[in-house]
């Protein structure tokens, strides 16, 4: 019997339920400890952020610039000062010297697995000069056949809204997507359509 008691005694060791201690000193200790830990961690994060922020911002700006150069090479990109329509996160006027020659827009549209963010270049006649995907979460080897393939994206070059919205695999203003990656193709088309819609009122006005 005494042997059998051993496990029982062990199980009883974790203290039986005690009423919650409301000793003010104990509560203070809890609060101060947690607060101190938070303060130290916050301080460390602040320092890290101060060191890395310039580098991160620079990398982001560099990436955005590279994407703009890819879709519409130019001397200068001037931010458009007006309220951005839905789905458009950045809008620049493209300049060669002092003449404006078109726009570059950053648009986001729903893909198959998440949002696809892309840079779309549009010239003064409302024709697409290039599309470059900046970020996406499409399925490797399926959706990426659209968003990571510059050959596919380049098929959008020269398309416009002259004959209405661009439609996927149908209609007169037709973009042939990649079979098996319909939703990713749809996302790219939607992003380009949004960009073309946004610039539509300004096309041919300069």
């Amino acid at each position: 019997m005494s042997e059998k008691k051993a496990p029982g005694a062990r199980a009883a060791k974790p203290a039986p339920k005690q009423p919650v201690q409301l000793d003010p000193q104990y509560i203070t200790r809890l609060t101060v400890t947690l607060l101190a830990i938070c303060v130290v961690v916050a301080l460390l994060l602040g320092v890290t952020n101060a060191i890395t922020k310039p580098l991160i911002d620079e990398a982001k700006a560099e990436k955005a610039r590279a994407a703009m150069m890819a879709v519409f090479p130019a001397d200068e990109y001037v931010p458009v000062e007006r309220e951005l329509p839905k789905g458009i996160s950045a809008w620049y006027t493209v300049r060669h010297g002092s003449t404006s020659v078109g726009w570059v827009l950053e648009t986001t549209a729903a893909g198959s697995q998440g949002p696809i963010t892309m840079m779309v270049g549009v010239d003064i006649n409302g024709e697409v000069t290039g599309v470059s995907v900046i970020s996406h979460s499409e399925t490797s080897n399926i959706g990426t056949k659209v968003v990571d393939s510059q050959t596919v994206l380049d098929r959008l070059i020269g398309m416009s809204h002259a004959d209405g919205e661009i439609t996927l695999n149908a209609g007169t203003n037709r973009f042939d997507g990649v079979s098996g990656a319909t939703y990713s193709s749809k996302g790219v088309v939607a992003g380009v359509n949004a960009a073309l819609d946004a610039v539509a009122p300004d096309v041919g006005k300069w």
């Binding site: 961690v41 890395t52 990398a59």
Partner: peptide
């Protein structure tokens, strides 16, 4: 969480 955020920022930079 503190360490993860630090690593996240360092990787991004």
């Amino acid at each position: 969480a503190g360490f993860v955020t630090i690593v996240d920022l360092l990787l991004q930079a």
